[in-house]
Design a protein around this nucleic acid. Structure first.
Length: 851
RNA sequence: GCGGGCGUGGCGGAACCGGUAGACGCGCCGGAUUCAAAAUCCGGUUUCCGAAAGGAAGUGUGGGUUCGAGCCCCACCGCCCGCACCA
């Protein structure tokens, strides 16, 4: 009998699937489809065990759906534009394109041995001119539709590298690479009008029943809808043109408790004063310093500057409030100006205490005393309070009721109007970088900004660039910028900004339905394959990627590239956990940690030792990191145990939404189990035992396994499904059933395992003479009749504690069960002749005797 | 601070709708096979008392609802994640 040899069988079956085009997605009218997609990877260079887990989950779903008669679309591609490629080029002198494509080749070569049922013929990278050319076409259509516009925006500018930095590249106010102090620079940039969709993107979350509540909540918070009042204070002795200050408040009911008006350091009035008054200039300069990175310092201290200007209270014109410039007010939220109500806001309270401003309450708790001077009273808006300085409504009402009443009264009195505001801002897509999709517009001296003609697409990135000098290579390329104005034909210059890489990943799922179409999508294909039925990816994309994709799907519908039904492109979303691994560390003489590779550590009784006997500290379940020496390389695992073991292990033990810890012992155990399955099935293939009395018991086990594993796969309970498969394997190996039934059970076992361990399953299928490929074989169906037993074992509880059990025919009437229970030895002993207080019989489940 | 989630043996984790807590795996213990080892197979394994039969306790803590609570309700403790000067 041969041994389980993954190194031989895995490549064999991969070749067979390839040649049979087993996983090629084909559109057939009348046959249902299923589109399963895992978030595509960035081509960083090597695949990670986390990728293996992510793609294995998708593959289980894909193979399972195929066996259930669906036309499955399960594609793979690469999110290939982005800064690491440029950074690599700067560091080692190569070209981002070479670096990227060579990484893609490596990663594809690492992924193929894992045996994923992918339609590789649809593969693309977002840096393929074919893909980004279509993205440019899409951009032009969105521009035409009014979904894209230009405006000035502030960026982080590194004056040494002459480049724009992302927020996360600014460390302590300095560029992460150059170390130069980062400047705030205003540039004209392109924006997508995602804010037009704020309300819709928020409301539509309700319809996403198969999305994690957590993700929906994160998106809702990000969009941040608030209802409030916008109105203007009239000013006293303000510079010309500033006779009104617009403010926005979500608490108009506290208007009678206002103590001051605060404006942002970036507010037009502050900017005006800055030019005239050096003290103001010094203050706002202080406020702007460092930006977001020094938020620790900023949170500690709330600073204000009294402008000397005052405003009149809208309901009492003799009441004047001072106007402060305050460092905690953001220009891009609301109107950049607020009124401060210290009685009911901690921040305003701190501010008023610091600057000696009056503190009055507008409402009090229904019962009990509070000292509003000592601390603000900030109850939930849904809570009822008693108003002492009432604008509108009942004296006793909830904050929500009071806000609505206050808005109505203010509107009736001509004091502003109720407005709905969103936190979500427009999506700035311009990046002053080389390795991205060029924005297809032309700057013409006479015509201004002109969209490029579609027939000129793709506007390709030039290859002859270098990264040895700072700045954007597109800017300094000798000829690339030169072009003819698409409108007047005169010599003009191309836009040198490229698109944010989030644009690339906002529509790739649609492109997979027709990767070779000469328009962004093919409507017939999109109509058939969309939506993505199951999307799988990391929680880190809960907000941006998924929100941008939802926006893009709408934009693509408006521009005629997707049918209406695709406005929400992902029917179901699953966010998977990470694969973690223990860190083994000791400390050097200075007390700094020293990290050891797992191979160097021997484990004994839960403790780890180095070769010389030194005990190491074990930090369990840590995120894998190269610098901590705890990375598990999938290629090494496949070499050691084979792909099926890796696939089996990453799904076992932990629920898929949670992190799973990779342990050598666990991987070893998974491998041993697969070898055991192979042995057991090979034994069955060679046996010839006539039918026995145990046949039926094994068949019942088989049908239960079919039922449970099916449920497990359907509900993403892969760990539970695997546990069930262990149990079924045990049942098979221990059973003394005849060979015919055992063969049937083994074939079923192979099928139930096939989404997780496809190679081993095909091998067993072939060994036992299964018909065709297991990948094509219909998923087994549980026979309901075999799931129900003729007899049931009822636990007998006395006062809720289990005291014994009783085996009775399944449909025995309640009365008879009761009689039997009362004669049960344990019950008789407890009752001791007395009658029970109560007797509860739940048919088929349990019996409880109350004494 | 706000929002969300989680807490079950030595470990990862099961437990459908409120109905036998600890499935399955790891580890550990014992045994078989072997000259020996590896590999494999068999049995045991929540804790405490007991030789055993059996009994008692037990799902972070305290209370509640219920014939019955890991699951529902209230309060608290701990951990994790997300957001955050948002007017």
């Amino acid at each position: 009998m041969s041994r389980y040899d993954p190194a031989a069988i895995e490549p064999k079956w991969q070749k067979i699937w390839d040649e049979a085009l087993t996983f090629k997605a084909t559109r057939t009218a009348g046959k249902p489809k299923y589109y399963v997609l895992e978030m595509f990877p960035y081509p960083s260079g090597r695949i990670h065990i986390g990728h293996v887990r992510n793609y294995t989950m998708g593959d289980v779903i894909a193979r399972y759906k195929k066996q259930n008669g669906f036309n499955v679309l399960h594609p793979m591609g690469f999110d290939a534009f982005g800064m690491p490629a440029e950074n690599a080029a700067m560091a080692s002198g190569g070209h981002p394109k070479d670096w990227t494509y060579s990484n893609i080749d490596t990663m594809v070569a690492q992924m193929k041995p894992l045996g994923f049922g992918l339609d590789w013929s649809r593969m693309f990278a977002t840096c393929d001119p074919d893909y980004y050319g279509q993205q440019q076409a899409l951009f032009l259509d969105m521009l035409h539709e009014g979904l894209v516009y230009r405006k000035n925006a502030v960026v982080n500018w590194d004056p040494v590298d002459m480049t724009v930095l992302a927020n996360e590249q600014v460390e302590n106010g300095r560029g992460w690479r150059s170390g130069a102090l980062v400047e705030r620079k205003e540039l004209t940039q392109w924006f997508f009008k995602i804010s037009d969709f704020s309300g819709e993107l928020l409301d539509a979350l309700d319809g996403l029943d198969d999305w994690p509540a957590k993700v929906k909540l994160m998106q809702a918070n990000w969009i941040g809808r608030s209802r409030g009042l916008q109105f203007a204070f009239s000013t006293v002795e303000a510079p010309e043109g500033f006779d009104r200050i617009e403010v926005y408040t979500t608490r108009p009911d506290t208007l009678m408790g206002a103590s001051f008006v605060g404006i942002s350091p970036d507010h037009p009035l502050a900017r005006h004063l800055e030019r005239e008054n050096p003290e103001v200039a010094a203050f706002v300069a202080e406020c702007r310093k460092g930006g977001t990175t020094e938020e620790a310092i900023e949170t500690a201290e709330k600073l204000g500057f009294d402008t000397g200007i005052t405003v009149r209270h809208p309901f009492d014109t003799s009441w004047e409030l001072p106007v402060y410039i305050a460092n905690f007010i953001l220009m891009d939220y609301g109107t950049g100006a607020i009124f401060g109500c210290p009685g009911h806001d901690q921040r305003d309270h701190d501010f008023c205490v610091k600057y000696g401003l009056p503190i009055v309450e507008t409402f009090l708790p229904l019962d009990g005393e509070i000292d509003i001077q000592a601390a603000p009273f900030v109850p939930a808006k849904s809570e009822k309070v008693r108003y002492t300085r009432l604008i509108a409504g009942e004296e006793v009402q909830t904050g929500d009721e009071a806000v609505n009443a206050a808005v109505d009264v203010c509107e009736a009195n001509g004091v502003g109007q109720g407005v709905t505001k969103y936190r979500l801002r427009d999506w700035g897509l311009s990046r002053q970088r080389y390795w991205g999709c060029p924005i297809p517009v032309v700057h013409c001296d006479s015509c201004g900004v002109v969209p490029e003609k579609k027939e000129n697409l793709p506007i390709q990135l030039p290859d002859d660039v270098s990264f040895d000098v700072p700045g954007n290579p597109l800017d300094r390329h000798p000829t690339w910028r030169d072009c003819a104005c698409p409108q007047c034909g005169a010599p003009a210059k191309r836009e040198t900004d490229t698109m944010d890489t989030f644009v690339d990943s906002s529509w790739y799922f649609a492109r997979f339905t027709a990767p070779d179409a000469d328009t962004p999508t093919d409507l017939a294909e999109a109509e058939y394959w969309m939506n993505v039925d199951q999307y799988i990816g990391g929680i880190e994309h809960a907000i941006l990627h998924l929100l941008y994709s939802r926006f893009f799907a709408r934009a693509m519908h408006l521009t005629g590239h997707l049918p209406e039904k695709c406005k929400e492109p992902f029917n179901a979303l699953f966010t998977q956990g990470m694969v973690t691994h223990a860190i083994y560390q000791t400390r050097n003489a200075e007390g700094r940690p020293v990290y050891h590779y797992p191979e160097a550590v021997t484990l004994k009784d839960g403790k780890g030792y180095l070769e010389d006997g030194t005990e190491v500290e074990i930090i369990p379940s840590a995120k894998m990191s190269k610098s901590k020496n705890n990375v598990v390389d999938p290629v090494a695992i496949i070499g050691q145990y084979g792909a099926d073991t890796a696939r089996w292990f990453v799904l076992s033990d932990s629920p898929p939404e949670r992190d799973v810890e990779w342990t050598a012992a666990g991987a070893e155990a998974a491998h041993k189990h697969l070898a055991r399955v192979y042995r057991a099935c090979a034994e069955v293939a060679g046996a010839d035992v006539p039918a026995t009395q145990e046949d039926e018991a094994l068949l019942r086990e088989m049908h239960k396994a079919i039922h449970d594993v099916t449920m497990g796969v359907e509900s993403f309970g892969f760990n539970a499904a695997i546990a069930r498969l262990y149990a079924f394997t045990n049942a098979l190996t221990k059973s003394r059933a005849g060979s015919a039934v055992k063969r049937q059970a083994a074939l079923t076992l192979a099928q139930l395992m096939s989404p997780m361990t496809p190679h081993l399953s095909e091998e067993i299928w072939q060994l036992l003479g299964g018909e065709g490929l297991i990948a094509d074989a219909p998923w087994p169906k549980a026979d309901e009749a075999m799931l129900v037993e003729d007899t049931v074992t009822l636990p007998i509880q006395v006062n809720g504690k289990r005291r014994g059990e009783l085996t009775v025919p399944k449909d025995m009437p309640k009365e008879e069960v009761e009689k039997l229970v009362l004669t049960h030895e344990a019950v008789e002993r407890t009752l001791n002749g007395a009658a029970p207080k109560k007797l509860i019989v739940v048919p088929g489940r349990i019996v409880n005797v109350v004494v």
